[in-house]
């Protein structure tokens, strides 16, 4: 794909990219620490990934292969438009295959396929401050980060166990990075938290509206908070994927009719398609005759 003329490579001007790269370098040097940066207006609304798109623009090179996912899917509006945006403004090759990509921008999922050392994953973050719901003062939360006073987060976990018998946080589950900084992993399901631990790929987090960038360097310890007698546990819907039959992937529940019909499918569309191409068939996958009838 050829880049549009009249735009700098990857939309942002070079000085802005330089500023964002400096913030990224600092973030990588202090894993889990939120670095402020001069977030720019982007041609998409806040909450659609303005932070992630700026980080992507700053680290994208001409030889990169870009993949964009939204809730695991490559074919949703947000993913399609961001992929096309960089296809046009940077002229980079885009893909939907996790293994082919060198740069993955994601909203709320980590791909099921394990990431490698030569890959970078960029998360879109709505709220970078994990303590925001517990302590409204940003000055105070900064002090708490500075002094590593994270007892308050455990009070939240205590309350959950007291009320529900288990920690009820199902997404954006708080983690401790490199045994030092408390970090919001962006609204990925708690199911994905273990994938962040010792991940070979570089993980970058961009929050556009909140103007923060943070990072987890490759092979860094990421521990989900828990109690000794209530260890962290992941949950997934107790089903197999209806299309590919996977029993270990994170599932979406799709309502299929107005009579209570529902289908559980892999949220990671690339993972699901790869498995189907390899011959795995789920219980509710359309048969060849059904496909022909369509």
């Amino acid at each position: 794909m050829n880049a549009l003329s009249g735009y700098n490579f990857a939309y942002l001007d070079e000085q802005t990219k330089r500023m964002i790269r400096r913030a990224i370098l600092k973030a990588v040097a202090i894993p889990g620490h939120q670095v402020p940066f001069g977030s720019r207006e982007m041609p998409l609304p806040y909450g659609w990934g303005t932070g992630g798109i700026q980080v992507t623009a700053a680290v994208l090179g001409p030889s990169d292969v870009l993949k964009v996912i939204d809730q695991g899917a490559d074919d949703t509006t947000n993913a399609v438009s961001i992929r096309r945006f960089f296809g046009r403004t940077a002229g980079v090759r885009t893909t939907t295959a996790t293994a082919e990509a060198t740069l993955i921008q994601t909203r709320h999922r980590i791909p099921e396929t394990a990431l490698r050392e030569d890959q970078i994953i960029v998360y879109q973050v709505p709220q970078p401050e994990p303590l925001s719901k517990l302590e409204p003062s940003r000055a105070e939360t900064r002090r708490m980060h500075g002094l590593a006073e994270y007892g308050l987060m455990h009070v939240k976990l205590y309350e959950d166990i007291t009320r529900f018998g288990h920690v009820s946080i199902s997404y954006d589950y708080p983690v401790l990075v490199n045994s030092r900084y408390l970090m919001a992993p962006s609204p990925i399901p708690a199911f994905d938290n273990p994938k962040m631990h010792m991940m070979p790929a570089l993980q970058l987090f961009g929050a556009g509206r909140e103007k923060r960038i943070y990072a987890v360097p490759p092979y860094t310890a990421v521990k989900s908070l828990d109690f000794d007698d209530h260890p962290f546990r992941t949950t997934r819907a107790p089903h197999a994927c209806g299309l590919c039959g996977a029993t270990d992937s994170y599932l979406d529940e799709v309502v299929t009719d107005d009579r209570g019909g529902r289908l559980f499918v892999c949220s990671d569309t690339d993972h699901c398609e790869t498995r189907r191409a390899a011959g795995h068939v789920g219980a509710e996958a359309p048969t060849a005759d059904e496909l022909a009838a369509e």
Partner: peptide, 12 residues
């Protein structure tokens, strides 16, 4: 329990 947790108690 908050002060205990702030001191590092991690056993519910």
């Amino acid at each position: 329990g908050e002060r205990l947790m702030a001191q590092g108690s991690r056993h519910y």
